[in-house]
Design a protein around this nucleic acid. Structure first.
Length: 904
RNA sequence: GGGCGUGUAGCUCAGUUGGUUAGAGCGCUACUAUCACACAGUAGAAGUCAGGGGUUCGAGUCCCUUCACGCCCACCA
């Protein structure tokens, strides 16, 4: 069978889609041990991740690329380790975001508002939108190489998940953990809905602090109380003026009556310790309808609550003459009127925190509104305990503190939203106001039997359904085979920015509804910023589009960059340059692979000693032993690093091994070894073995190029006459076995040390040649006086010759020399002296300077080490460490001695 | 106000049980179209590991402290 020549450069465009289709068609993304299929073995360990469901309306951004890279790495690693892996994909209906997008679209295309369409029609249109565009994001996630089980894909509004939501709501309701009532909540006037505390962002901004007079009733001699506010329009909703009980200035006013400016309403002056005497004027206007602190004070003093804003944040009927005005217009007008009335004291610029909507950025108003809440205390306690008791581990650990802090101070969760797109609250009201809920839609009031019932108009916060995600996607509340086998999931991986929004809520919900933690480990990745650490934003124009990056540089390059450039929990700065570097790495893998594959394919005749699948180290050259020892060390290190979630470091080490050890050194030496009959086949075997293992280790990072090359390697091996390669060769790398760390056999350290000396010799000669401007193609003669290393160097003569550009026919290695060869320059490495006949090309004076410089360097090392070894170090440091330093010292001393003889 | 993170080569960053010559990529300098790869190779220059103090035989790594930048949480009008 003839094979096509592999192209010189890796063509990821052609490869990626083909490979992905092959994986999907092969069914490799499915758990190999499926509880729904015959032959299921409950003893096989599952490894499960629920995808953080992207917004169904979303477009792929780097955050998605990050989580897919990390999660796919975890999944692929465990799949290769033999776990029955399941990665559940899906998307989130994203209430507000989606509704807004569809609204905008309708307005643009049909010039129609949702109110004009009506609720049913609007929801239908939104579903149409979802069916049309909902697949885009999942298609884009496939491009990243995500090995999700797409047959188990879920959507937070699909029938099954809607049933989970219903079940969860009813359970909480029945337990008394859900209640409805008027409370002060965050209101978004633009969206006309309540939002939760988490959806409000506070920004430090300059505002105006308005000082004015709160006039007192009765005799004018009693005067006024000065008060300051940032929001004058709320004066209209004041129901008290508060001062500190011990405040000498205002004590006399406590219990008196104040007059609300312009509208003339009478309100009491009260005393409350909350008021700070030092701050502002020391007196506080109390607007319980529009300020959380004032609300709390009003509760204590039984004050009435007056709302002055409507849903669009315009002044309502309590706004007196300002009714109908926008909140900011009212502020201006009211202040002007107060000025005319002589009530104004002064205005001051003031830095303060302004609450803004996370979506849209408009100023959020605290408002009294009737909403649904989850009594979160009991849930939070359990969630707190789960992490404290180590049932759940958070990586990196420092986020546990953040998590504790949030849960310890958590407030009830407002779960109702005045939207149309979402899970409608499953509660029905009769004309008498009785509430009825249930797992099925009721036909009559559960209290009075009235058939005249209507469902609550609100929908649930999107995060209510997201909180159930790890188990709702597996079939809960039914005890499905999937749920029983795959739940709890293994790792929850996401950005630290949604620790509260999502992770904490899943933990609370998981414990509440399933009685188990929803996952064992939380792995938090950082946020991606631009190359200078700035947030990526459209206004800055510094957004990197992962789709474009993948088009231009390949998916593997992007994935490797995100995985290797990041530390868990730390933000990462990304630049296209980095991705380019990793595109080069993919190409390096490709070409190293191409070399090995060609070598394997070149073996067309039966090789003796085949079918020996064990390693026969006796036939190995030094380089063979060295690369094998390095390889095994890498396998051990990668395993250790993976176990501790240090994926970046693992990736770096594989990169370094493949590029520096394997490609730069071993492959170069292999070229020579393959030219000789006695080492040809064992060299090809070693090349193939090392490449195979490297590709396996690298596969979770760069799945496409490794799969492609491995496939060619596999074919070439199965077709060649070399059969004694100890490896399993399944049909695809994605399901190949993860390399198991081997025990050390004892010879490794010595071989590595020997090879390191060869590397030093080669490097020093190359260095000298470069320094002396010897043409790289020129082969030069050499004489070695190698002392104890004579046998070693003699055995590596051709390796040294080819790598250092020596002429093997004029290359002598002796134990010692009676005299220094004439017209030569010398190098000294420990006890090895190297003479190169270059003196015709060099200035002898310079040459002397070079040697003197080397001597000086060596002697400084000697001094340093002698000092070190003369100190307490020798007594107190571990013997091994001391011995290592002693060895070094001996080496330097040897070098110095030899150099000195040169100078004579 | 509380908590956390970061500060290592010109740039972007690694460096997890403290081991004595601090690494990578990019960029820079010189050389090389050699038969895996110029998306490459070889060689090189470049760092008082933010400052100070401490623990230790030994500190980029642990402790204290100062400075700079960033983030999160929090009800002071």
């Amino acid at each position: 069978m003839t094979r096509h020549e592999l192209p010189k450069a890796y063509d990821f465009r052609d490869t990626e889609s083909r490979i992905y289709a092959m994986w999907e068609k092969g069914g490799y993304f499915k758990p190999h041990n499926d509880p729904n299929k015959p032959g299921f073995d409950p003893n096989v360990k599952p490894f499960v991740i629920s995808i953080p469901p992207p917004n169904v309306t979303g477009e792929l951004h780097l955050g998605h690329a990050m989580f897919v890279s990390v999660e796919d790495l975890m999944i692929r690693y465990h799949r290769m380790k033999g776990f029955s892996t399941l990665w559940v994909p899906g998307s989130d209906h994203a209430g507000i975001a989606t509704q807004l997008m569809v609204e905008r679209d309708l307005l643009k295309k049909e010039e129609v508002t949702r109110e004009e369409l009506g609720r049913d029609e609007f929801v239908k249109r939104t579903w149409d939108w979802k069916h049309k565009y909902g697949g885009i994001i999942t298609e884009q996630i496939r491009r990243l190489g995500a090995s999700c089980d797409w047959d188990r894909e879920r959507f937070t509004l699909d029938d099954g998940l809607s049933r989970s939501v219903r079940e969860a709501f009813v359970r909480l309701y029945e337990k008394g953990l859900i209640y409805r009532g008027p409370r002060l909540i965050n209101w978004s006037p633009g969206l006309k809905t309540a939002v939760s505390d988490l959806e409000v962002e506070y920004s430090e901004e300059e505002a105006t602090l308005y000082y004015f007079k709160y006039m007192l009733k009765a005799e004018p001699s009693e005067g006024y109380i000065p008060v300051a506010t940032i929001r004058p329009e709320t004066i209209l909703g004041d129901t008290a003026v508060a001062v500190h009980p011990d405040d000498a200035r205002y004590k006399k006013f406590i219990g008196k009556t104040a007059i609300v400016p312009i509208i003339g309403r009478e309100i009491p002056v009260i005393a409350d310790e909350y008021v700070s005497m030092e701050f502002g004027t020391g007196a506080l206007k109390i607007t319980p309808g529009h300020d959380p602190n004032d609300y709390a004070i009003a509760q204590r003093h039984n004050l009435p609550i007056i709302s002055v804003l409507d849903q669009a944040a315009k002044m309502n009927e309590n706004g007196g003459p300002y009714q109908g005005q926008d909140r900011f217009d009212c502020r201006k007008n009211l202040w002007a009127d107060m000025k005319s009335a002589g009530l104004v004291i002064k205005e001051e610029k003031y830095m303060t925190t302004i609450p803004r909507s996370q979506r849209g950025g408009e100023i959020v108003e605290p408002m009294i509104s009737t909403q649904w809440f989850v009594k979160i205390g009991p849930l939070a306690e359990a969630a707190l305990a789960a992490v404290k008791d180590d049932d759940i581990k958070i990586v990196p650990e420092r986020f546990e503190k953040v998590y504790y802090n949030w849960l310890e101070n958590i407030k009830d969760w407002c779960i109702s939203r005045q939207l149309w797109w979402g899970h409608r609250i499953p509660v029905w009201y009769c004309p008498d106001g009785h509430m009825t809920t249930g797992r099925a839609d009721p036909t009559q009031c559960g209290t009075c039997g009235s058939k005249d019932i209507h469902q609550d108009e609100d929908v649930l916060d999107t995060w209510f359904s997201s909180g159930l995600w790890p188990f709702s996607t597996l079939g809960w509340p039914d005890e499905t085979p999937d749920y029983k086998y795959f739940y709890p999931t293994s790792v929850l991986e996401t950005g630290y920015d949604i620790l509260f929004f999502w992770v904490a809520r899943m933990i609370m919900d998981g414990l509440e509804f399933t009685g188990q933690v929803p996952f064992r480990t939380v792995y938090l990745h950082g946020l991606i910023r631009d190359e200078h650490g700035r947030k990526m934003s459209k206004t800055y124009g510094n957004v990197i589009d992962p789709l474009i990056v993948m088009d231009e540089l390949g998916t593997d390059a992007l994935r490797f960059t995100l995985l290797v450039g990041a530390t868990p929990g730390n933000d990462m700065n990304l630049s296209v340059k980095k991705v380019e570097a990793n595109r080069n790495f993919a190409n390096k893998i490709w070409n190293a692979g191409r070399f090995v594959i060609n070598a394997v394919s070149s073996v067309t005749s039966q090789v003796s000693g085949t079918n020996d699948r064990s390693l026969n180290t006796n036939h190995w050259t030094l380089a063979d032993s060295w690369i094998w020892a390095k390889m095994q060390k890498l396998v051990r290190d990668v395993e250790r690093l993976f176990q501790t979630f240090q994926y970046g470091e693992a990736g770096r080490q594989i990169y370094e091994f493949l590029w520096c050890d394997f490609a730069d050194w071993y492959v170069e030496i292999a070229k020579g070894q393959m030219a000789k009959d006695d080492t040809r086949y064992s060299t090809i075997e070693t090349l193939a073995r090392v490449l195979d293992i490297s590709l396996r280790l690298l596969h979770p990072f760069t799945p496409f190029v490794t799969e492609e090359i491995w496939g060619h390697l596999r074919d070439s091996i199965l077709q060649s006459r070399i059969t004694n390669i100890a490896a399993d060769w399944p049909e695809a790398l994605i399901v190949a076995k993860w390399p198991e760390p081997r025990d050390l056999e004892g010879w490794e350290d010595a071989k590595v040390a020997d090879f390191t000396l060869i590397q030093e010799v080669v490097r020093d000669i190359r260095n000298l040649r470069a320094e002396k401007s010897v043409a790289p193609s020129k082969r030069i003669a050499a004489t070695f006086a190698a002392g104890q290393q004579t046998a070693l160097l003699e055995s590596q003569k051709s390796v040294i010759a080819s790598l250092a550009g020596l002429d093997e026919s004029q290359f002598a290695i002796q134990t010692s020399l009676s005299s220094k060869p004439k017209d030569s320059v010398a190098l000294v490495i420990g006890s090895v002296e190297i003479y190169l006949p270059l003196s015709d090309m060099v200035d002898l004076a310079n040459e002397k300077a070079r040697i003197e410089k080397e001597l000086a360097e060596t002697q400084s090392h000697i001094e340093r080490l002698e000092k070190l070894l003369g100190s307490d170090f020798a007594n107190k440091a571990p013997a091994q460490v001391v011995a290592k330093e002693r060895e070094k010292l001996a080496g330097y001393k040897e070098t110095a001695k030899k150099i000195k003889t040169q100078l004579k």
